[in-house]
Design a protein around this nucleic acid. Structure first.
Lengths: 231, 231
DNA sequence: AGCAATATCAAACAAGTGTTTAACTTTCGC
DNA sequence: GCGAAAGTTAAACACTTGTTTGATATTGCT
């Protein structure tokens, strides 16, 4: 019944994705990876020429699907014939797709954190290529979409808006992730849920609540600060 | 002229604060710390009983001043007799004080990151105590202040608002920090500044621009979503 | 079948880690 | 000024890290 992989390269990628996501790069040893993937320790270096490289490929593999889903969601909104796309629908797509993409994948709540490391790394790969191919396309696409649905917006205003929205998304993703790795009967857990009740909900509901809030909050700000100009 | 410290305990704390802030916990070795502080390697263990503990004390030392400054700023707003405190002034205090506190200290742009590690750490100290004594008081104080200046707000609405504001703050802090460690003539640097022009400004101006934006953005949202009820 | 090329493996490697030791020096109360 | 406590030191310790080795097994091609 189980579709067990036999390709050690993929077994390693899977194990690495899960382990890196919940422990971070430095906290995972090659021996740990090899054990989890049920391969020899040398396999990492044989197939990926080093731990850093394996990490890099894990990141790429995930962000390619994330990027494509985000772009796809936007196209769906813009191409919709039955209802004219507006600012709210673009914002909603951005928010929802990012929340789902980073939270719904069971193994990896913390790819925001991993991404941060990848972009930050002085050592290792140039983050430029990654940034240009993974982050920028999405950013650009949504920026031009916003301009399209509200032409009165200026480029710099869009930068600010996007930053505020993305900042909120990251924050709510991080909150969930933080909660996720807490013991449910511990003090920390109780305090977090008490301070922020939405964390008590199941993931699906949490995503919807957060998406609703960010969209509403941001739309209210946008409409108030940069109202639509009626000709 | 120079006020050189001779207490190795403080020399270590200073060196550690700077090194941890720009390289992260794992990337700094005890030998590196000792060299930077110009003390023997054994000093870390003699004075702090381990690296983890030193890190912890560094965090505490910084966040105590950060917390107190935040609370002080709020009291100043609430206690002002010449102008009645309102939502905008509370929000502005929260935003500005956090931006200044995390960005203005020259050594440490990345204490947000360090904090994340501290709160996240499965190993090491219980994050509960830290959370309760460093984060909660500020959160609570500003929450009740918001309730005070706009009584129509409900507790849960305040949670959402605070989360959105803090998320934005973190994000803009992170952006600056990311830029800070980039070579000014590199591609990454150019792209970042191009995508987000405010990063081209000096720190002081950046802080003001960001504080203005977050305050305006959030206030627009708050006033639109939860307008003041006039009796 | 046979022979490369490829893949896997246990074992070893070199370098770095945090920490401890035991000898030495300084400090400070009396 | 003596002696005990506190502080400092270089060296060693025990351990983990990522990586490489050379032998062994497997594969794919003619």
């Amino acid at each position: 019944m189980s579709e067990e992989k036999h390709d050690p390269k993929e077994k390693l990628l899977d194990a690495a994705e899960s382990l890196f996501a919940c422990k971070g790069f430095d906290e995972v040893s090659i021996r740990e990876l090899a054990a989890a993937a049920d391969v020899n320790v040398a396999a990492v270096n044989y197939h990926f020429q080093g731990k850093e490289n394996l990490f890099h490929e894990v990141i790429i593999r995930r962000f390619v699907v994330q990027r494509d889903r985000s772009l796809e969601a936007l196209e769906k909104v813009l191409g919709s014939t039955k209802e004219k796309p507006n600012v709210a629908s673009v914002v909603r797509a951005l928010v929802e797709e990012n929340l789902k993409g980073t939270l719904s994948v069971p193994t990896s709540g913390s790819f925001m954190t991993l991404l941060a490391r990848e972009m930050h790394s002085q050592h290792g790969h140039s983050s430029t290529a990654f940034f240009r191919e993974m982050v920028m396309p999405v950013f650009q696409a949504y920026s031009t979409a916003l301009l399209q649905v509200r032409p009165s917006l200026q480029q710099e205003q869009i930068s600010w808006i996007m930053a505020s929205i993305i900042g909120q998304i990251h924050h709510f993703v991080t909150r969930w992730h933080k909660k996720k790795f807490l013991p449910e009967d511990g003090d920390d857990f109780k305090i977090m849920v008490q301070v922020f009740p939405a964390l008590g909900q199941p993931l699906e509901e949490y995503i919807q609540l957060v998406a609703d809030h960010i969209t509403a909050f941001s739309m209210a700000a946008i409409d108030s600060l940069y109202p639509e100009v009626v000709e």
